[in-house]
Design a protein around this nucleic acid. Sequence first.
DNA 1: TCTTTGCTCGAACATCCGTTCTATAAAAGA
DNA 2: TCTTTTATAGAACGGATGTTCGAGCAAAGA
Lengths: 215, 215
Amino acid sequence: MRTLSPRQKKIIDFIYQFVVDSGYPPTVRDIVNGCGISSTSVVDYNLKILEQAGYLRRHPEVSRGIELLTLSPALRYRVQVPIIGQIAAGVPIPVPAADTWDATASAETMEVTEDLTRGKEGVYALKVKGTSMIDALINDGDIILLQYVNRVENGEMAAVWLKAEKEVTLKKVFFEAGRVRLQPANSQMRPIYTTPDNVEIQGRVIAVIRQMPGH
Amino acid sequence: MRTLSPRQKKIIDFIYQFVVDSGYPPTVRDIVNGCGISSTSVVDYNLKILEQAGYLRRHPEVSRGIELLTLSPALRYRVQVPIIGQIAAGVPIPVPAADTWDATASAETMEVTEDLTRGKEGVYALKVKGTSMIDALINDGDIILLQYVNRVENGEMAAVWLKAEKEVTLKKVFFEAGRVRLQPANSQMRPIYTTPDNVEIQGRVIAVIRQMPGH
DNA sequence: TCTTTGCTCGAACATCCGTTCTATAAAAGA
DNA sequence: TCTTTTATAGAACGGATGTTCGAGCAAAGA
């Protein structure tokens, strides 16, 4: 794929700004005026290229039928994240059941903007019970956004089940030679070392949300 | 104001669904077909009522110029919070200037759902710089949502400027007889006591958002 | 040099679409 | 009963709008 011409970049920027300002997409002639182009056919020509390149979708014969696919976070839709349970020190975190994936089916949901989940699949939320995760700078009542994965990259924050200790903990995980280093988010605290077969990754921590009580 | 007729409810629901599905608003004739109405003038008639009632905004002479103001829960209640600066230990937090209130004017904004701000006015965000607020379970890089107030209720978490120490700190504030108790969020840590004239409330902490670095 | 390709321009066409006008009818008020 | 209000319906006007066509032009390739 070729790189976009300045004119095409300008068209995309204009469409985005127009949608934000107006609440509906521009017409071809709006783009003509907004981008200083002298003919509608030029816009049509470039829109076809942009559609081909995957930047937008056009709906034929439909006025203002331009759908921006690469929207800025400000316009992306929000995500309903199901709060499927709690997370505490001595209990494995609940495994998301198939029916709780549908946010509407879950008892409680949390609504977040998509720039938090960054479009990830399989994101769910847990409510923190107790103060056992203070070393991860996570307090009682905080809400943790997790992605359901079994493996994480080095340095990522994960919900880790320690089999021997029968304990779940939130740490940055580093797989090192023959051992696993679990590093608290609080840099003032010491890491924990354990064996690879003692750790079970239960999810990747996407975000932490702490809401202060009451008005 | 009268209650909406079933037909008007249906029109609003249809417009919402149409926007979600298509990415652009419907035409009057789309509504005619989608709601089983037999004339465009009926739609126009009801749209005028709905605009009068504040449910939507119409842009005259503009095709698909319907802007839904009271969107369904999935699209409603989204707030752009301006990120007006940073918060660090030794620096007073920046005072929101008049021109930064407008989220679009601010350099950087953060989008949150309204259940976080709970409809509060004057909410802005600060990015935490440094690890000086670890005792408040707040880490470097976290984002703090603050409400611009000069006074807080007992027990509320606030951004406090300690004049003598020339330091800003985040603590639960308790006004007691002749003194002020500043209680860290981390219940394992000891409170700080100071005099009332040494504290300056700079804002009420609404929420803390921590986003894990990238994927 | 001739051809091809990428891009732009102006004009025109057929349809789309917001708006308005008139008419009808049921319900409410006087 | 007569009038007003509310709601719906059909039709038409005129401008808006997506699309297409023919043409020009500069750069690249053969």
